[in-house]
Design a binder for these strands. Structure first.
Lengths: 179, 179
DNA sequence: CTCATTTGTTAATCTAGGTGAATGCTTTGT
DNA sequence: ACAAAGCATTCACCTAGATTAACAAATGAG
C-alpha cells in the first residue's frame, strides 16, 4: 500500500479520528460516503441481503484504504456498510477527494494505482469464487492475509469466504486432524 | 462507455484490426498483453483451472474495452486468455498505453473512470457470487447484458455464471415452463 | 451432401455445503 | 460477580448444483 504521506497528500483537509470497536462508519443507501485510511485497527465492508444475512466484501487493516469508491465515482448511494472491528485510528477523507474530475495529475496517478490494485484483488476473488472449493478459498485467504485470522472472528472469515460458520468450522477441523 | 474518439485519444499509435471468430488474442502467461476496444464483434476473457475447465471472467461487445489491466499494471504475465467469439473489428492498444507513468492528465482521468467502472462491476459480481443462487445470477445477467444471450453459446453463459451448462439448462427449463 | 463435432436437453445419481438445533466457552454489560 | 449475549463446534438432516451418461438438434469441414 502507498505510505501515509502519499495518501495524506490527496486531501489536506483529512482528519485523524479515533473510533471504537463496533462503530458504524457508513450505512448502505447513505450519500455521505467517506474514505478511511487505517493507521491502526481494523475495518470491514459488507452488504446485508434480503434475508438479513451479512456478506463481507473486504477487510482493511493497518496501511489499507477502505472506501466505497464505486458509489463515490458515480454519485450513487453507498452499496456497502462499513464498520469497525477493533478500536481504530483512521484518517478520514471527504468523498470529493476521490472524485476523478476534481483531482490533480499527481493525485490521479496515486489514485490510479490504488484502483488498479483493488481491481486486481477483485479479479482474483471472482475467479476464486467461481472455480475453487471452500477449502481452497480458505487456504488462499490464509496465504493472502496471514495476520487476519487472529484478529477476525471466524464467522466473519466464513462470511468473507462465502460459506457458513459451520462449514468453515468443519473445514478447520479436517485440516487440523489430518496433520 | 466512453465513445470511440475519446478512447482513441489514449493512443495515437492504436491500429484497427480485423479478427476472425476463434482467434486467440492473449494467452495466460504471456507478457505481450494488449488492450482491445471492440468496434464490432464480441470478445471474452477467461482462465483455465487445473482440471482444464474454463471460467469466463468477462465479455466485451461493441463499445467495451477488453484488457488484463491487472497484469499490465503490475508488469506480470497475463492471468487471462482472451479470444474472439465473433468476427470482430478491434482497436488495438499497446500495453504501454495503460502504464500510468506515461499518461497525460486527460488520459489518466479516462483511465481512472474506466477502472472505477470496472471495479463497480466486479464489486457487484463478487456480491452476487457470494449471496445469490444460480437462478438469481442468471436473471441478473439477463437484465445486465440483454444483448448477449442471443450471441453467446449457453455453455459460456453458464461458465460466466459459475455453473455447469446442465444446471443452466435446467434453470432455463423451469423458467420457461412456469410462465 | 455427409459424416463428425459441438451444442443443448433430460434424467439418475452423488456430494459439498446449507439449515437447524444442542452443547459448552468466551465476551460483554451492569 | 453474575447474567445474558455472542461465539465456535458438532451432529442429523436437506437441498442446490456437480457429475455422468444418453440422445437429439445444430454446426461445420471436407
Amino acid at each position: 500500500m502507498e505510505n501515509l504521506n502519499e495518501i495524506l497528500s490527496l486531501d489536506s483537509k483529512a482528519k485523524t479520528r479515533m473510533v471504537k470497536k463496533g462503530e458504524i462508519l457508513q450505512t448502505e443507501g447513505s450519500y455521505s460516503s467517506l474514505a478511511f485510511y487505517v493507521k491502526k485497527g481494523l475495518l470491514r465492508s459488507y452488504t446485508i441481503d434480503e434475508k438479513g444475512k451479512e456478506h463481507i466484501f473486504m477487510f482493511a487493516s493497518e496501511g489499507w484504504l477502505m472506501a466505497d469508491i464505486e458509489s463515490q465515482e458515480f454519485d450513487q448511494p453507498a452499496e456497502l456498510f462499513i464498520d469497525c472491528l477493533e478500536d481504530s485510528e483512521l484518517v478520514v477523507f471527504d468523498r470529493s477527494c476521490f472524485k476523478i474530475a476534481t483531482l490533480t495529475e499527481s493525485q490521479l496517478k496515486k489514485n490510479a494505482h490504488l484502483l488498479a490494485r483493488r481491481t486486481a484483488v477483485l479479479q482474483r476473488r471472482v475467479i476464486m469464487l467461481m472455480s475453487a472449493s471452500a477449502r481452497k478459498r480458505y487456504n488462499r485467504f490464509l496465504e493472502t492475509y496471514p495476520e487476519l485470522p487472529d484478529r477476525v472472528p471466524q464467522r466473519m472469515i466464513a462470511s468473507y469466504l462465502g460459506v457458513t460458520p459451520q462449514a468453515l468450522s468443519t473445514i478447520r477441523g479436517k485440516i487440523a486432524r489430518q496433520k
